[in-house]
Design a protein around this nucleic acid. Structure first.
Lengths: 157, 157
DNA sequence: CGAAATTATATTGCGCGCAACATAAGATGG
DNA sequence: CCATCTTATGTTGCGCGCAATATAATTTCG
């Protein structure tokens, strides 16, 4: 009714929509690049986790991938099975604790990293975006995420 | 191999992951609030478009909703059918151009706006986030979106 | 006018995300 | 040692997103 309340629900005033739209625009930009590797965007994120752990440890738990990416097994189990059937990783039960499934990169999965190294550069190029601004944006989003986590934790408490 | 290239693919260095994670955290925060209205988050965005148009025009095309939210008919058609079966809107062919489907709010859909007015405030409260910073973040995301759009357009050209 | 091109929406299929539930293995405590 | 609890992963179902294709109506143009 009053002019102020009208503006509160305006689409362009919603931070949530800005994040939603930006997220889809970014993943759309990754799509053609990742399809050359035969990866979807969430699969690429899983590979980032595995590449990062590679060298330090020889396998990663499903739960560890989920913790890093904030994804649950309902998402990860089928995704990891697809990566396995594409020959990028192996899934096997930990003999010491049969509940645990450990994920190990195959040679093919490890080698893909070399091709992926070009991706971050490819995305910034073609857009006239200042690296400093992108870095600042990333940190602001991280702060938002932490603030949302804290609020979620305290409301449950 | 070299230390610099190792860091390029580190998960925490990816702006894309910051956006991806923030987007899911924000929608997770909306979920319990919207479920009281019987809406999903994308359905809420469609309602925002319809509420915003309400008063100015008496119906909105599917394509106009898609243009605003950057969604195609593969997403919108079933979503709008669900909103229709929940009694929030009507879908009907434009007699003047039978290709066009026009979306009109029902009384129930229009009334829901009053309940939705409290939502934006509810989300910021419970988090210690400064409104100015959120506004600045929104504008940075808008700039990113525009930059990605421009780059996409020029590469096709 | 009539064929071809264009426009607007619908359908199909697949891969997420996530809630809810299931299963099985390990830990715990009487 | 055995019932109970907890932990780690798996399964099912549903609603997006999006590519690819389909259908039907309108426009364009020879």
């Amino acid at each position: 009714m009053n002019p102020e309340s009208d503006q509160r629900l305006a689409l362009d005033n919603q931070l949530c929509f800005a994040i939603y739209a930006a997220n889809r625009a970014v993943t759309a930009r990754y799509r053609p690049i990742l399809s050359e590797l035969g990866l979807t965007y969430p699969q690429y994120l899983v590979m980032l986790v595995l590449w990062e752990a590679d060298g330090a440890v020889e396998s990663v738990r499903v739960s560890e991938i989920g913790r890093r990416l904030r994804l649950d097994t309902g998402t990860l189990t089928p995704l990891l099975k697809r990566l396995q059937s594409n020959g990028l990783l192996d899934r096997r039960r930990d003999p010491a604790d049969e509940r645990v499934v450990t994920i190990t990169l195959t040679a093919r999965g490890r080698e893909m990293r070399q091709r992926a190294l070009a991706i971050p550069g490819q995305l910034v190029c073609g857009t006239n975006l200042e690296p400093d601004r992108l870095l600042a944006l990333r940190e602001e989003l991280r702060s938002l995420l932490i603030a949302l986590d804290d609020a979620a934790g305290s409301s449950v408490e």
